[in-house]
Design a protein around this nucleic acid. Sequence first.
DNA 1: ACTATATAACACCAATCGGTTTCATGTCAA
DNA 2: TTGACATGAAACCGATTGGTGTTATATAGT
Lengths: 106, 106
Amino acid sequence: MAALKYDVFQAISDPTRREILRLLSTKKRAISEIASQFPVSRTAIAKHLHVLSEASLVSGEKIGREKIYQLQPEPLTEIKQWLAYYEQFWTNKLSILKHVVENDDE
Amino acid sequence: MAALKYDVFQAISDPTRREILRLLSTKKRAISEIASQFPVSRTAIAKHLHVLSEASLVSGEKIGREKIYQLQPEPLTEIKQWLAYYEQFWTNKLSILKHVVENDDE
DNA sequence: ACTATATAACACCAATCGGTTTCATGTCAA
DNA sequence: TTGACATGAAACCGATTGGTGTTATATAGT
């Protein structure tokens, strides 16, 4: 509702929303089609889709009486970039050792 | 409290917790030292550290009367692996086109 | 021994979250 | 046109979140 109330980190923090993204990664789907895959109500799924939409991870297009949602993976680059900073601490032993030594010095 | 109540996705969904991780990436720090960097109370920071600890993103060691927290970046690999699946949808034009065409086919 | 400090452990609170049910609206199809 | 279907919108609910303050306990330093 309010502009950017949900960022991409919050959007992917919910397991149901991650599963919705997974479903949309194979094809566009209408709300009811998505909801049929979950044990919760259609309304609950519609709310999750709204959250994902605010984070720009999905886009919805109304076609006839259906609203078709589609994956928009671009915002995930923000997660990727955030993660890149921490990769130095585990991708090779040298970095990890460097990290430990620096900590012990202070 | 309950085992694995917080997973790594939820742990990093909060901006304050992400900032705590950033602080700990440069060196080990005690709770009070971390809390001094934020506008919220020390108690609130201790709760955030507890959440991060449940997600195994930090570990705490009591030394004297201080509790020293340290970054444990390994669980971030789970995020990285999750993200890897979606990279095919934006890392090159070919994959994106393939995605669109498949969607239009159904 | 005292005193100040660092943390833990509670109890508490307002706001939010994920979910529900109900009702209204709009669209497709017989 | 009538009915079934897909969605949107609203009100509501219980649990959780993120925050507070208070109190208790243990430790460090004088």
